[in-house]
């Protein structure tokens, strides 16, 4: 038997979950339990704020929520305009849910972990990213119409169709993998520290690592929400230059009302169907 410098690395179990099978489908019950807990915490804080919300001097929880709402709304209104308001609840829910889910990593739950950070499981991050991207594409379809939506894949040149397509495909994948990778790596490093150092020495580096992981959790939650906002911005932002058809239609419409660049696309469509009044 070869002498071992470190403890047996075989003890580290990565990506192993408590699963149950139902009708041929596998469910990671630990992830489900942990994400349910995170959801209950977020909803609990939310409902607490709803019940205790005051028009006067707000308490800390309300202040935290209000800060989140104000920051998100301001960000949207500066870039997308008032249409972005509908996305604010999504961005806020994502941030709060992911933050709490990430912080579940800080709760010591023994080995094997009964309460793993659910964002360290690809299932949650894929679910969130998929939902977000579906909503982004839905919003884009509603804002631009089917033709406009399909045409934006050909912007600025039809030659860029493959690149645009790959970009759209990459969005959910990167969104899911970034969050998963960060939280998962955090768990791996914590496991390595526990495994490689004797128990009486492991607690100190582990403490520093957990503090670091706390910050990483905030950054990752923020990043996920921010990227969601950015994707919605791209989806809701009107095309910068109207196509030649729309441009001509706007020119021939002959109305004296100034057309703002933000609403140029939609206005030109309306005015082209209405004859000039003079």
């Amino acid at each position: 038997m070869t002498p071992q410098i470190f403890a047996a690395p075989g003890q580290i179990e990565i990506g192993v979950h408590n699963t149950i099978s139902l009708g041929g489908a596998t469910f990671n019950i630990d992830t489900i339990a942990a994400s349910l807990l995170a959801g209950i915490i977020v909803v609990g804080f939310g409902l607490y704020v709803r019940i205790r919300a005051t028009d006067g001097v707000p308490h800390r929880t309300q202040l935290a929520w209000e800060m989140l709402v104000t920051t998100t709304e301001r960000h949207f209104e500066r870039t997308v305009g008032s249409t972005g308001r509908k996305v604010v609840p999504l961005a806020i829910s994502l941030f709060a849910f992911i933050l709490i889910a990430n912080w579940l990593e800080l709760v010591p739950s023994g080995s094997p972990k009964s309460l793993p950070p659910p964002t360290g499981d690809i299932n949650l991050t894929v679910a969130l990213a998929g939902l977000v991207i579906l909503m982004v594409h839905g919003a884009s379809l509603r804002a631009r119409g089917l033709r406009g939506y399909l045409r934006h894949y050909l912007r600025p040149s039809p030659w860029l169709l493959p690149i645009n397509f790959i970009e759209e495909m990459a969005k959910p994948v990167t969104l899911a993998l970034r969050l998963f990778g960060n939280v998962f790596a955090g768990a791996v490093v914590a496991a390595l520290i526990l495994d490689l150092l004797p128990p009486h020495l492991a607690s100190i580096p582990l403490l520093f690592w957990k503090l670091f992981a706390m910050c990483v959790a905030v950054v990752q939650a923020f990043l996920f929400a921010l990227l969601t906002i950015l994707y919605f911005q791209t989806a809701l932002k009107p095309d910068e230059e109207p196509s030649s058809e729309e441009g001509h239609a706007a020119e021939h419409a002959g109305t004296d009302t100034p057309v703002s660049p933000a609403s140029q696309g939609s206005v030109s469509i309306h005015t082209s169907s209405v004859p000039p009044e003079r």
């Binding site: 489900i32 604010v88 829910s93 679910a127």
Partner: peptide, 29 residues
């Protein structure tokens, strides 16, 4: 790295959180 059926449950969990936040929390705030 390959997701399984848990994805569906997670979508439901987050949709519920989103629903509560959007329907009950944010309007009051």
């Amino acid at each position: 790295l390959v997701p399984n059926a848990t994805v569906l449950v997670e979508i439901g969990v987050f949709a519920a959180v989103l629903g509560v936040v959007a329907r009950f929390v944010l309007p009051r705030l």
